[in-house]
Simulated assay, not measured.
Amino acid sequence: MSPRSLISGGLLLLGAALPSCFSNNRHQGQRLYAQHCAGCHGEQGQGLARLIPPLAGSDYLAKHRAELPCLVRNGQHGMIVVNGVGYHNVMPGNKTMSTAQLTNLLNYVESHWGNQAAPRTIRDVQTQLDSCRRP
C-alpha cells in the first residue's frame, strides 16, 4: 500500500469517527439537563408556578449570562427575579460537572425553549468560573 493510500484511508477512518464524537457532545447538554435540572425546572424548562423559575423564555438567562456558570457551579441562595416574578428558593450547585459539561449544559439551556444566546466556548466558561466568588 502506498503512503498516499494510507493517508487517504486514515482520513476516511477519522472522518467516520468524528461525527459520532461530535454527536455525543452535541447531545450531552440535553442529557445533563435531564439528569440534573429537569426534576425542578421541568422537562421543557417551564419551572414550577412561583416556586421554581422557568428557564424557557427566561429574561434572567440573557440579563445574567456572565454569572450563569457560577450559579450552576455554586448554586443560588438569594432572591432572583425572572420574567417579573420573584423567586426565593435555594438551588443546589453542582461542583462535580466538568467545565466542558457545564458549557454543553448552558449551551443547551440557552438555545432551547425560546432562548437564543450565542454559543459559549469552554474557554469562556472557564474564565467566568475563575471569577466566581466562593460561597
Rank of each mutant, 00 (worst) to 15 (best):
Q126R: 04
N83F: 09
Y60P: 15
G84K: 09
G78I: 07
V81T: 14
L55H: 05
A62L: 13
Y33K: 03
D130M: 04
R4F: 05
L129C: 03
N25K: 09
W113K: 15
L12R: 01
R65V: 11
A62K: 15
A66K: 10
D124F: 05
S20A: 11
A100V: 13
A49F: 09
P54K: 00
G10I: 08
A17S: 05
N25S: 09
G93A: 01
V90I: 08
Q30M: 11
V85P: 15
H112A: 11
G10T: 13
A100M: 07
T121M: 03
Q44Y: 11
C70Y: 03
G93I: 04
W113T: 15
R50A: 12
W113C: 15
G45L: 02
G57E: 04
P3K: 04
G10H: 04
I52K: 04
Y33N: 02
L6P: 00
M1T: 07
H64S: 14
L102W: 00
Q30G: 09
V82L: 13
L61Q: 07
C70M: 05
A49P: 05
L102R: 01
C132V: 03
R120E: 13
A16M: 10
Q35I: 10
Q116G: 06
R133Y: 01
R4L: 09
Q35V: 10
V90C: 00
P19C: 01
L11H: 13
R31Q: 06
H64L: 14
R123H: 04
C21H: 01
A16D: 01
Q101T: 06
P53Q: 03
L51R: 08
Q46K: 08
G57S: 13
R123M: 03
L105P: 15
W113R: 14
